[in-house]
Design a protein around this nucleic acid. Sequence first.
DNA 1: CGGCGCGAATTGTGATCACATCGTGCCGGG
DNA 2: CCCGGCACGATGTGATCACAATTCGCGCCG
Lengths: 220, 220
Amino acid sequence: MNAPSTDAPVPAHEAVYRALRSQILDGELAPGASLTLRGVAERLGVSMTPAREAVRRLVAERALAMTDTGRVQVPLPDADALDELFRARSLLEPELAVRALPRIDKALISQLRAIDERLGSCLEAGDAAGYVRANNAFHGLLYSRAEAPALMALVESVWLQTSPVMRRVYGRTGTGALVDYHEAALDALAARDAEALAAAIRSDVEQGMMLAREAAPPGR
Amino acid sequence: MNAPSTDAPVPAHEAVYRALRSQILDGELAPGASLTLRGVAERLGVSMTPAREAVRRLVAERALAMTDTGRVQVPLPDADALDELFRARSLLEPELAVRALPRIDKALISQLRAIDERLGSCLEAGDAAGYVRANNAFHGLLYSRAEAPALMALVESVWLQTSPVMRRVYGRTGTGALVDYHEAALDALAARDAEALAAAIRSDVEQGMMLAREAAPPGR
DNA sequence: CGGCGCGAATTGTGATCACATCGTGCCGGG
DNA sequence: CCCGGCACGATGTGATCACAATTCGCGCCG
C-alpha cells in the first residue's frame, strides 16, 4: 500500500517513519501543524502502535516536538535555535565533505552537477519544495561518499529540524541574489582541493543561515 | 511505581528511557550485551509497550543498535566509528564551551573544580564507572550554561555512543600519564579566554580519542 | 566425536482495548 | 454581549493478546 518498490519487507513502523520523515524534509508538513497518533495511523493505514513508534522516533530526533501533555506538532525553531542548528551544520558538514573527497570520481561529480541544475531550475520556477529536496539531495549524495554513518546521522538530525524553515524561506523570499557555492564546491571537488571544498560548504551553509534568520521568529 | 519521590508524574516509557540511558552512560550495560523487550519490561516493572518505546528511542539516538531481525544490543563502535564520534565531539564541544563562557560565574567554576577533584580520586581508585560519570558531569555542567539545547542534544547523542567504550578504556588501562586538560579549561574559564578554553576542550576530547582508539576493535 | 537439522521456546511486531487526562465547544448567568 | 464552568469528545498511555519469524538446544546421523 505504501511503497512496495523494495523487495525487502519493511515493518509498518519503519514505513510510517519514512513517510513522515520525507514529508517533513520536503516541507509538506507545515511548521506548527499538529499531529495525532490516530490521525497518522489512519492516514497511513496502520494501527496506533507503529504510528506511535514512528512519531516517538522523530521526536527523539527532534524532527517533531511534544508538549508536556503529549501533544505532537512540527516545531518551528526560533532564531536562537536556528543559530545553533546552522552552526552545527557549518562545523560538521565541511568535515563530511572533506572525508568524502578521496572517494569522489567523475561520475559522482556529474551526478552532483545534474542535481545542482535541477536545483537551479526549481529556484527559477519558485518551487520551494523542489529546491529543498534538491538541496538535500546534493549534500546527501556528496556526504554519502564519506562513509561516516555516525557523523551523517548527526547532520541528518539537524536537517530534519531546519528543513521546515527552509521550505518557508524559499517560499517567501524572492530567492534572488544567491551565490552558488555549489559550483565552487564542485570545482574544489574536481581539483581535489580540501581547503577550498570545506570553505565552499561552510559558505553554503552560512548563506542558508542568513536566509533562515530572516524568516524565523525572533529568539529570546 | 518505581520513583514516586518526584512530584511530577513521569510516564513509564520516560522512566524506562532514563533508567536505560543512565545505565549506558555509566557503563553498567556492557558493549555487546543484548536486551530483550520483555526482559527490560519485567526488570523495570512495566509492560512491553513502554519498554519498546524507550528502547526504540535509544536506538534512534544510536545508543542501542538493532540487527535487521529486530534484536537489540549495546553497540561496540569500531575504530572508524570512534574516529567519527570523537571528531564530532572535538568540533561541537568547543563551540558549546565558548557559548557557555559569558554565563560562567565563580560559583560554577568551584562546582566544576569539585567535580574535577572527584574525577581525580575516581581515577586514582581505579573506579572506571565513577570516572566516566564524573567526566560527563563536568562537561555537562559546563555546557548546560551555553543554553543551546539543539547543540546539546547532538553532543549527548554522541556521548551515549562513546560512553560504553570509555568505561572499558578506563577499566583496562593504567590511567597513567593523563594530562589534566580540565585544569587548563578551568583556568581559561577564570581568565575568560575563549581561545584557550576551546583549545583545552579540544585537547581533552582528543586525548580521550587516543585512549579509546587503543581499546576499540579495529575498523575496516 | 563433531557437524547438522528439526522442533520448541523466545522474541519482535502489530492490533485492540480500557482508562485517565486534556482540549473544546456549548450553554447559562451576569 | 461577554465570561466562566461543565460535559462530551478526542487523545496519549499502558496492558494484553495473537502471530510470524527467529534463535537456540537437543538429539541424530556421519
